[in-house]
Design a protein around this nucleic acid. Structure first.
Lengths: 227, 227
DNA sequence: TGTACATCAGTGAACGCGCGTTCACTGATGTAC
DNA sequence: TGTACATCAGTGAACGCGCGTTCACTGATGTAC
C-alpha cells in the first residue's frame, strides 16, 4: 500500500459507499436482485434518496459494482484455496462454502441472467482468472497421461471428441500450458460443481431427503481419484 | 377425452387464457420473470388491464400457472423421450432441446429463486414424476452391479458413501425399486446435466471458444459407458 | 319463434404506491493565503 | 491564527412513470319458458 494516506473525506466516502453496498446486499438477500431499490437503501441508512447519487451513478451502476465485487470475491476465494494447497477438492469445498455463505451473491453471478443486462467487461478477466486457478490446480493434480482417467474419462468416444475439440478451442484457457486432457477435466469439474450447487442453492434438493453435501463430496472426488 | 363438449363460452375462455399466457411468456423472454406486467400483457392483447382479472386472480396466480406449465412440459418431454427408447442420452438430449427452446422457461423452474415466492405444491409431484422417469431409464440402462462403474463410480470412497447415504435417504425416489447404485447414477447424471445447461443458458460459455454441445455430449455419456 | 332474464366479458375511471432521477439549495468541511 | 473561498455531502420538493388492483357500469351472449 504505497498510496498516500487517504484524506478524511476520502475515508468517509469509501465508508459510506461500503455501507450502501452492504445494505444493497441485505436487500438482494431479502427480495432478490430485481427488488433492489435505491430509495429503500437510503431510508435504511437514514438518508434521503437522492443522496446516493453522490456515491453511485444510479441503480445500474450500483448493481454493476455488486456484480464486480461478487466475481472478485470468488476469484480471491479460489486463489486462497489454491495457495492453501488442498488440491482440487479444496477448491471445490471453498467454492461451496462461498456459495452457501451468501446464495444470492452466487446467483448474482451464475443465476438467471436478466435479458437486458450486460455484465461489466472486466468481469471477463476475473472469470478467466478463476479458470486459470482451476487449471493450475487441475494440472498439478492430474495424472501424467489421459489413460489414467476412468469411465467418462479419456477412452470413451465423446470424451475423446471433447479433448480434441478443446485442443483447438482453448480461448478460455488463455496461454495456460495445460494439455487437452487437463482442459477437459477442469471444464467437467467446473460444470459438475455448478450442477450440484445451483440445484442445491435453488432449493431443489429440499424435501428430497438426502444431504446435498454427501452428493457434493462424491462429485468432488469423482474426477480426481479412481476406483 | 370423455368430457362433454365445451360450450362456446368455455372454448373462448380457454383460448383467451392461452393467449394471455403466450404473451406472458413473450414478456418473460424479453424482460425476465420480474418484468412481467399484467397491464403490458393486456395492452398487447388489445384489451384493458382489469380485463385480465376475469382470467387470473392476479399477477401471482398467472406466474404460478406458468411455473406449473413449465414443470408439466418438462415432465412430458421426459416421458416422451423415455417412451422413444433412446436411453439415458436420449433423455439428456431431450432436456437440452427443451431448455434451449426457451431458456427463460428453464430458468423459471431451475433459475434463481425469488426469495418470497413459493412454487405451487403440485409441482413437487411433477418434479418427482421427472425423477421417476429418470430412474426408470437409468435402471434399464445400468449395469447389473456397481462394480461396472469406473472412476468416480462405486469403488471410490465418496461414491460408496453417497450410495450408502442414498440407500437410507430415498424419499425423492418414492417407491421406485431402483437399487442404490442406480439412485446414485441417476442423481449424478441429473446434476451434471444441469451443470452444463445452467452455465450454457446463462451465457457463461460464450466467449470461451468451445462448443457447449460437445461438452454436453461428453457429460451425457460419461456415466453411461465406460472407457 | 319470441320474450324475459341471467351470465359474464370487457371498459374506464380511480386508488395508492414506490420507483429512479433532476434540480436548486443549505450547511458543514476542507484548503489557501 | 484567522479570514476568504472552494468543495462537496446531504436535503426536500418535484417530475413522470408504470405498476397491481377495486369498482360500478355497459353490452353482448347464452339460457329458460
Amino acid at each position: 500500500m504505497a498510496a498516500g494516506a487517504a484524506s478524511p473525506r476520502e475515508r468517509y466516502r469509501s465508508q459510506v459507499r461500503a455501507e450502501i453496498k452492504a445494505r444493497a446486499w441485505d436487500q438482494i438477500a431479502t427480495a432478490g436482485a430485481s427488488g433492489l431499490s435505491l430509495n429503500a437503501i437510503a431510508k435504511e441508512l437514514g438518508m434521503s434518496g437522492p443522496a446516493l447519487y453522490r456515491y453511485f451513478g444510479g441503480r445500474d451502476d450500483l448493481i454493476t459494482e455488486l456484480v464486480r465485487d461478487a466475481y472478485r470475491s470468488l476469484a480471491d476465494t479460489f486463489g486462497a484455496a489454491a495457495d492453501a494447497g488442498t488440491g482440487l477438492s479444496g477448491l471445490a469445498r471453498a467454492m461451496r462454502h462461498w456459495a452457501l455463505e451468501d446464495p444470492q451473491r452466487y446467483f448474482l453471478v451464475y443465476g438467471t441472467p436478466v435479458p437486458g443486462y450486460r455484465a461489466p467487461d472486466d468481469t471477463t478477466a476475473t472469470a478467466r482468472e478463476i479458470m486459470a486457478t482451476l487449471l493450475d490446480v487441475c494440472a498439478a493434480e492430474a495424472p501424467g497421461s489421459a489413460e489414467a482417467d476412468g469411465p467418462g474419462g479419456a477412452g470413451t468416444a465423446p470424451a475423446d471428441a471433447l479433448e480434441a475439440h478443446l485442443a483447438d478451442h482453448r480461448d478460455w484457457a488463455g496461454d495456460h500450458p495445460a494439455p487437452p486432457h487437463v482442459l477437459r477435466r477442469a471444464l467437467a469439474y467446473w460444470t459438475r460443481l455448478h450442477g450440484v450447487l445451483s440445484l442445491e442453492l435453488a432449493g431443489h434438493f429440499t424435501g428430497m431427503g438426502f444431504d446435498p453435501e454427501v452428493l457434493f463430496s462424491a462429485e468432488c472426488e469423482g474426477l480426481t481419484r479412481r476406483g
